[in-house]
Structures are given as C-alpha cells and as structure tokens.
C-alpha cells in the first residue's frame, strides 16, 4: 500500500477529489489570512492602547463609514465566491455520468454487501480503475453512511428509500471504506475496503465470483461467512466473540439463558440464523441482527453446511 503524506487533507484518489481539495485549500487559506488579520489587529490594539493609569479617559471614537462598509462587503464577496464554487463541485459530485457502472450496496448492522450486475456479491467493494461507478444504496435496518475519505465520497444509506453516490477511482490501491452515520453498538467496526483494480483484474475477479456461484454449499457458506459479516462476531477457532464460536458447534448440546437445552442439529442452526432472538445462548446477549431472515433459502443451507464443517 502506497502512503504519500499529504499536507492536511489525506491523499486523493478520485476524479473529483482534486476539485474538492482545491476549494478546501482556498477557504482554508482565506480563513487563515482573515483570522491572522483579526488576531494581529486585536493584539496590536490591546498592546498599543493598554491602560497606562487608572485615570485614563479615552475620547469616544467616531465611526468610520469606509471601514464599516468594507467589513460588510468583503465577507459578502468571499462567501458568494465559495458558495458558487462549492455548489458547482457539489452538482458534479451528485450527478453520476451516464456510462457509470452500477453496483448495489446493502448496508445493515454492521456490515456492507456489494452486489454486481451479474449477481456476484462481496463484502469489499471491487472497482475498476478509471471508470465511473454508481452506487445504489439501501439499508435493512437503521441509518448508515458510506464514506471513502480518499475519494471524498460520502452518502447516507437510509432505510425505506434508495440513495446514490458515484466516483471514479484514479489509482490502483486499497482504500478504507467506513460507516459515518452512527448505527449502534458496532458502528466503529463497520469497516470495509475499496479495492481498485485494473480493468482486466477486475473482470477476472468478477468471473471468479461467478464460478463460486456453483461451488459446493460449504464453499459458498464460507463466502457468505465473510460477506455477511458473521466473522465479526463468530470465530472459527473456538475463541468467543460477541457471539459463540462456530468451532465444534454443530451437534453439541446448547444451553440457553432460560435454562433450557437443545442439540444443535440442522434445524436448530437454521433457526439460530433466521430467528436469533428466540433462543439466546447462555452467557451471550441478544445482539445478533434479525436481518438474516432475509437470506435466500439456499444461502442459509450453505451457511449451515459451512458451520457443520467446523
């Protein structure tokens, strides 16, 4: 991973990032000048007109019309400039080019799922370099927000409606993608990455994903385990996390918080995934999202097959 240290803003890697940065630096510089001017005057006055004796009796100052008008006019002009500039860049950032490649984004507590037109799904966002990409986003539960600092791209993901974002990556690299709308307990863990590849590598990756579609159930289950974010809470090596580990889970006797017991057979595993709130394993809290009920039946089969292998 290439890390260039930029001044103030992070490295930019999308077509419009440069426009945003130019505007940002313009305002920053103007603000610094304004601020320095105000502070210098303040310090100067405070020193120059410091009280010399308790009996100091300054004369009232007559107000100066030119000075007064200028401090109304200058800020007005400055804000007019930044408004128009910001507005034009914003429109550019809002309207995706017509030839953009469409990717569907599904957000849920606390994972991202990216779905490609050919049906491939992934938990990291793979995109080709130098090609505009349009994201159509929806949320299964609460508000989330998709943020890629390197691209200067951010858009809320709102349940009950679609929202859109687009960008065109300019550099092959891996970039951090994060959730910036507070969404509950593991908001800060809702991270993923954008993997920018050459057009060829990207095509190859898409193809691979298609092949995986007719892999064995357990192999598909393994994919889903990553994609659906099960790994955030369930380990494969026996270490307990937010949820119990999958290691040795299938076939064992489970003890629930209300004292009842049950053998973890296929049906139990299916119900544990689709109705997580009904039986809570002892020692854990009811934190598993209910959204997995929306998985396709064959996906659930695949997950169950995968769990049984561990």
């Amino acid at each position: 991973m290439e890390q260039r240290q930029a001044f103030w803003l992070p490295d930019a890697a999308s077509t419009y990032a440069g426009d945003v940065d130019a505007l940002f630096y313009f305002i920053l510089i103007v603000s610094v000048i304004l601020f320095a001017g105000v502070m210098a005057t303040m310090v100067l006055f405070a020193w120059r007109y410091r009280r010399r004796s308790a009996a100091d009796r300054p004369k009232p100052v007559k107000e100066n019309k030119i000075v007064e008008t200028s401090w109304i006019l200058v800020p007005t002009i400055l804000v007019a400039i930044v408004f128009v500039w910001g507005f034009r860049v914003f429109i550019h950032m809002n309207v995706a080019p017509p030839n953009a490649m469409e990717i569907t984004v599904r957000a849920q507590k606390w994972s991202w799922l990216f779905e490609y037109p050919n049906g491939v799904r992934a938990s990291a966002l793979h995109v080709p370099v130098g090609r505009p990409v349009k994201l159509t986003m929806s949320s299964a539960d609460v508000l989330h927000s998709l943020y890629v600092p390197a691209f200067r791209t951010k858009m809320d993901v709102v349940p009950g409606r679609y929202t859109y974002a687009w960008f065109e990556a300019t550099r092959q690299d891996t970039f951090l993608l994060m959730c910036t709308e507070y969404c509950g307990q593991q908001h800060s863990m809702m991270l993923s990455s954008v993997i920018v590849q050459s057009q060829d590598d990207f095509e190859a990756w898409l193809q691979e994903g298609l092949l995986a579609a007719d892999a064995s159930p357990a192999e598909r289950g393994e994919m889903l385990y990553t994609q659906q974010g099960c790994l955030a809470c369930h380990s494969l090596d026996g270490a307990p996390g937010t949820g119990p580990s999958f290691a040795g889970l299938a076939g064992s006797e489970r003890v629930f918080a209300d004292g009842t017991r049950r053998i973890a057979d296929d049906n139990y595993l299916r119900e544990a995934i689709t109705q997580p709130a009904t039986e809570i394993v002892e020692g854990y809290m009811a934190l598993m999202p209910g959204t997995y009920a929306l998985l396709e039946p064959d996906e659930i089969d695949a997950l169950v097959a995968f769990i049984k292998e561990h």
């Binding site: 505007l23 601020f35 303040m42 910001g86 507005f87 927000s145 951010k154 910036t180 709308e181």
Partner: peptide, 30 residues
Amino acid sequence: ALMFLFLFTIGGLTGIMVGVLAVDVHLHDT
C-alpha cells in the same frame, strides 16, 4: 473576552467551511 475572539473566530470560520456543499460532503460526521 480575547480568548473568545480567538476561539470563536476559528469555530465560526470552520462553520463557513462546512457550510460549503462540496467540502461538507467530505467533512460531515468526522
């Protein structure tokens, strides 16, 4: 009072920065 002038001016000017549409997209919720 002078401290107020110093700090508030920084706060206000950065308020203007985040009021700029394109810039706020990057800075919002950070």
